[in-house]
C-alpha cells in the first residue's frame, strides 16, 4: 500500500495550495469590485473624515499587499477580521452558522444518497419496468420542481395539515442555548452530551429541510447511478462473469455497483460542496439560520468582510471535500492506488 500513502500525501500537500489560491482569488475579487465598501455601508451623508476613521480601524487604508498579508496571517490565527457594519468580530456567529449548514448538508445527503442510489440502481437493473419509470419520473421531478416550492408544499402538508413536523428548520434557540457547544452541530452535540430530548426536538426540526434538499439532490445521484450502472453492466467483464456462471446479484453488486461507484461518488461530493453554500433558498424557506442566509444578508448589507470570510470558509470546505473524495477514489479504484 505504499502507493496509497504517497498518493494521500501528495493530496494533502496540494490541498492547502488549492485553498491558498482560492483565498487569493476571493481577496482580489472583493478589492477590484467597483465602489467603496465602507462608504456604501454608512451611506452618502456621513462625513469623509468619519469614513476615513473606519477605514483606518479596519485596516483598509493600508496598501493592498499589506492587507493581503494581514488577511492571510489573520486566517492562520483563526481571525476573520471585523464586520464592516457592526465593526465587531463575527467569528462566533459565522462558525455557528457554518456548523448549522454543515449539519443540514449532512442530513440532506443522508436522504439523497440512499434515495438516489437505490432509485438509480433499481432503474438500471430493472430497465423498462414500472419501477424504472417511477424512478425516472422522480428524477425529473427533482430537477424541475423549484426547491422553495417543494419546501412550502412539505410545510403545508406535514407542518400545517398533519402537524407532525415544525415549519421552521434547525434547532430552536432555547435548545441551542441549552446544549453545550462541542462541534456546533446541535443534533450531534445533544447526542454527545446525552440530552435525548434536545436531540429529538432538533431532529424534528431538521426533517422537512433535509427532505426538501435531499430530494432535490437525489435526482442527480439517481441519474448518475442509473447511467453508470447501465454502462458498467454492458462491459465485457460482465458477460465474461456470466459465462463463468456467477450469480446475478453478485454481478450486479461486485461487478456493477462496485465499478459504478466512482462516478457516483464524484457527483455526491460535488453536490455536498454545493449544498454548503448554495442552500440559500431552502434556508430562507425554513428560516434556517445557516451559512447561506448569512451570506445573503451580508451581501445585501454590503458587509464585505463577512462575505469574504464566508466565501473563504466555503473554499476550505470545497477543498476538504475534494480531498476526501480523492482519497475514497483511491480506496475504490486500484488503478489509482498503484
Amino acid at each position: 500500500m505504499a502507493g496509497l500513502r504517497e498518493y494521500i500525501i501528495v493530496r494533502l500537500i496540494l490541498t492547502p495550495a488549492m485553498v491558498l489560491i482560492l483565498l487569493t482569488v476571493v481577496f482580489l475579487i472583493l478589492r477590484v469590485l467597483p465602489g467603496d465598501p465602507v462608504r456604501a455601508s454608512v451611506g452618502p451623508k456621513v462625513p469623509e473624515e468619519y469614513v476615513q476613521k473606519i477605514r483606518h480601524e479596519l485596516g483598509l487604508d493600508k496598501p493592498l499587499y499589506q492587507q493581503y498579508i494581514d488577511y492571510i496571517v489573520g486566517l492562520l490565527h483563526g481571525d476573520f477580521g471585523k464586520s464592516l457594519i457592526t465593526r465587531r468580530s463575527f467569528k462566533e456567529e459565522l462558525l455557528s452558522r457554518f456548523a448549522a449548514s454543515l449539519e443540514l448538508a449532512l442530513c440532506s445527503m443522508l436522504v439523497a444518497i440512499p434515495l438516489g442510489l437505490s432509485l438509480g440502481y433499481l432503474g438500471a437493473t430493472r430497465r423498462g419496468s414500472s419501477l424504472d419509470h417511477i424512478s425516472r419520473l422522480l428524477g425529473v421531478a427533482s430537477y424541475s420542481i423549484p426547491v422553495f416550492w417543494l419546501g412550502v408544499i412539505l410545510q403545508l402538508i406535514f407542518g400545517i395539515w398533519l402537524g407532525i413536523f415544525p415549519v421552521t428548520g434547525g434547532a430552536p434557540p432555547s435548545i441551542k442555548f441549552r446544549v453545550p457547544r462541542i462541534t456546533g452541530m446541535v443534533m450531534l452535540d445533544s447526542l454527545l452530551s446525552g440530552d435525548i430530548e434536545a436531540f429529538l426536538i432538533t431532529v424534528k426540526h431538521m426533517v422537512l429541510p433535509s427532505l426538501t434538499l435531499g430530494f432535490v439532490i437525489s435526482g442527480v445521484i439517481n441519474k448518475v447511478t442509473r447511467n453508470a450502472m447501465l454502462e458498467v453492466l454492458s462491459e465485457d467483464y460482465v458477460i465474461a462473469a456470466k459465462a463463468r456462471g456467477i450469480p446475478d446479484f453478485r454481478i450486479k453488486i461486485k461487478y456493477g455497483l462496485r465499478n459504478a461507484l466512482i462516478p457516483i461518488l464524484t457527483i455526491a461530493g460535488l453536490q455536498f460542496a454545493l449544498l454548503m453554500g448554495g442552500a440559500v433558498l431552502t434556508e430562507s424557506t425554513f428560516s434556517y439560520s445557516g451559512l447561506g442566509t448569512y451570506m445573503r444578508d451580508a451581501v445585501l448589507s454590503r458587509d464585505y468582510t463577512v462575505v469574504q470570510a464566508a466565501v473563504t470558509l466555503y473554499a476550505i470546505i470545497v477543498a476538504f471535500v475534494n480531498l476526501v473524495v480523492d482519497i475514497i477514489y483511491a480506496l475504490l479504484d486500484p488503478r489509482i492506488r498503484y
Partner: peptide, 12 residues
C-alpha cells in the same frame, strides 16, 4: 474472449 483488456473486472 477476444480482448483480455476488457474482460477482467478492474476492481477485482
Amino acid at each position: 474472449f477476444q480482448d483480455p483488456m476488457t474482460t477482467l473486472n478492474p476492481t477485482m
